[in-house]
């Protein structure tokens, strides 16, 4: 590149009219020996080229990123899934437990009425009769025994009657 071409190109560069190819040409030119007057410009272009060599500087960087994204995906999904299932299960458990306790309270407050113990009405009638007969027998027995108490009553009446007679006699 002769100095005229160089100066034209530089002029375009400072005015931001150069293409990427032309800028690349300038960078290449300034890699070599340059006249003293161009020293600062050369430094600038060398700086640009040097800066482009800078790398992330960690040899296992890619491996680390891969490890992270692979670990990231399936774990994240399954953990979220388990978490959701656990949430639903916990909700169901609360409802069931609450239902159970409420039922117990209700039972305490309203004791259950007698439940039917017989499914066949005839059988039930028989059993009822039997029970009533038993009660009736017991009553009869008791009645007989209670009859004995009448003896005392009669005796008392007789005694009172006699006394009354005696009084009449005395008067």
């Amino acid at each position: 590149m002769d100095s005229l071409e160089l100066n034209n190109l530089l002029e375009k560069y400072w005015n931001c009219d150069t293409s990427l190819e032309e800028e690349q040409k300038l960078k290449e030119y300034f890699r070599g020996e340059v006249p003293e007057s161009m020293k600062e410009t050369a430094q600038l272009f060398r700086y640009f080229e040097e800066q482009q060599k800078l790398s992330v500087g960690q040899s296992n960087f890619e491996a680390e990123v891969k490890k992270k994204i692979v670990a990231h995906r399936p774990k994240g999904k399954s953990v979220a899934l388990y978490f959701n299932i656990a949430r639903i299960a916990a909700g169901v458990l609360v409802v069931v437990a609450a239902g159970y306790f409420v039922r117990q309270e209700v039972r305490k407050a309203y004791p259950v009425e007698q439940e039917d113990t017989f499914s066949d009405p005839k059988l039930a009638l028989e059993e009822t009769k039997k029970a009533l007969m038993m009660i009736s027998n017991s009553f009869n027995k008791a009645h007989k025994e209670a009859g004995k108490i009448n003896l005392f009553n009669e005796a008392e009446e007789k005694i009172q009657g006699k006394r009354a007679d005696e009084k009449k006699v005395n008067i």
């Binding site: 800066q51 482009q52 800078l54 790398s55 992330v56 500087g57 960087f61 890619e62 990123v65």
Partner: peptide, 24 residues
């Protein structure tokens, strides 16, 4: 693209350590 991203992040943040974190 890691090196390009790193250089740009480094230009903005001024710290290599932080630039690496950002690229990741």
């Amino acid at each position: 693209t890691k090196n390009k991203l790193f250089r740009f992040a480094f230009r903005l943040l001024g710290s290599q350590e932080e630039a690496r974190d950002v690229v990741q």
